[in-house]
Amino acid sequence: MPIDPRRLLARPFAPIEHAYAQRDSQIYALGLGLGSDPLDAGQLRYVYEGRDGRSLRAMPTMANVLAYPGFWAREPDTGITWQQLLHAEQEIRLHDLLPASGRVTGTNRVSGLWDRGAGKGAFLQQTRDIRDAATGRPLATVVQLSLLRGDGGFGTGGSGGAPPPAHPMPEGEPDQVCDLATPAQLALIYRLSGDLNPLHADPAVAAAAGFKRPILHGMALMGVAAHAVLRTILAYDDTRFAGMRVRFTAPAWPGDTLRTEMWTRGGTVSLRVTALERGAVVLDHARVDLR
């Protein structure tokens, strides 16, 4: 049965309240590989609370896991062929610094739906607004673009126009390059932040999906790229990190060495990430917006 675009665009989502502690922020950062150098004061800001117990910082990309609505595409009322859903892009916009602990509220909505035609799938965009639960202060907006490979051909009823175009990449050699090694257990740590998809932990599930081993979460890959920018360009000053958008182009494996190439043009850092051992470009047409 094809999806009903009007019903999907109007689908209601209950607000999600999410309380988290410093320990959650630390586990999230460890799931991106921070702390690999215990003498690096920049990395320690995100994994150690400090002698005063109040020095911990939250990684900017932690917005991806706050008040997360879960894999709602599996619900019967959506009509989505969820087995053929592919995560295509992810974007975060930061309106304020994320606290290392707190209580937030997230409201999710389907913000776009574009038909590519029968047999070609459709693009679905969802947007989540994250606010401080006590004050209502906006903290972040998270935008996710998914390719519904099995749900094209519904015709009218979707969104007008077209999905957001890819971020254009500069020509020439990058201005900076950062290589970050990832430990083999990285996906097993990252999943403790809430994404329990067995594709990232169970070798049998990965094999059934056509992979020789469990793959790294796309959100973890995004976080590693954010770490590269914080380390190389911002000297771990996350107050200058205003947003990030990435396009997923190939799976990364836990244990890959990830090379982030960076081109800085004004307040935008364009990114491309390659898994060095395999020569695979795993993130492309990506950017970080600076304050």
Rank of each mutant, 00 (worst) to 15 (best):
T249M: 05
T260N: 10
R240Q: 15
P254F: 06
W253H: 07
V269R: 11
D256L: 08
W253C: 04
D256K: 04
W263K: 13
L258C: 14
R265D: 15
R247Y: 05
T257H: 00
V246Q: 00
T257A: 00
S270A: 15
R240I: 11
V269T: 15
T260G: 08
D256Q: 10
M262Y: 02
D256N: 14
T257C: 05
G243L: 07
T257K: 02
E261I: 00
M244F: 13
T249P: 03
M244Y: 13
M244T: 14
S270C: 13
R240K: 14
F248S: 00
P251Y: 12
L258D: 11
F241D: 15
G255A: 02
A252H: 02
T260M: 10
S270R: 10
W263C: 03
R265I: 12
E261V: 00
S270H: 15
R265E: 15
T260V: 11
A252M: 12
R265P: 11
E261F: 03
D256S: 10
R247F: 06
G255K: 02
R245D: 07
L258M: 14
G267I: 03
T257P: 03
P254K: 06
R247E: 09
A250S: 08
V269H: 10
T257D: 00
A250E: 03
A250H: 04
E261D: 13
S270L: 09
A250C: 04
M262H: 03
T249Y: 04
G266I: 10
E261K: 01
M244E: 12
R240A: 15
T257N: 01
E261T: 01
E261G: 01
V246A: 02
A250Q: 01
G266W: 08
R247W: 05
D256R: 06
T257V: 05
V246T: 03
R265G: 12
P254M: 07
A242M: 04
R240D: 12
M262S: 01
R265L: 12
T268N: 05
T249D: 02
G266F: 07
T260F: 07
G267M: 05
P254A: 08
G255C: 00
G255T: 02
R240G: 15
R259F: 02
R240F: 09
R240N: 09
G243I: 11
T268L: 09
T264G: 01
G255I: 03
R245L: 08
R245W: 08
M262Q: 13
F248H: 03
W263D: 12
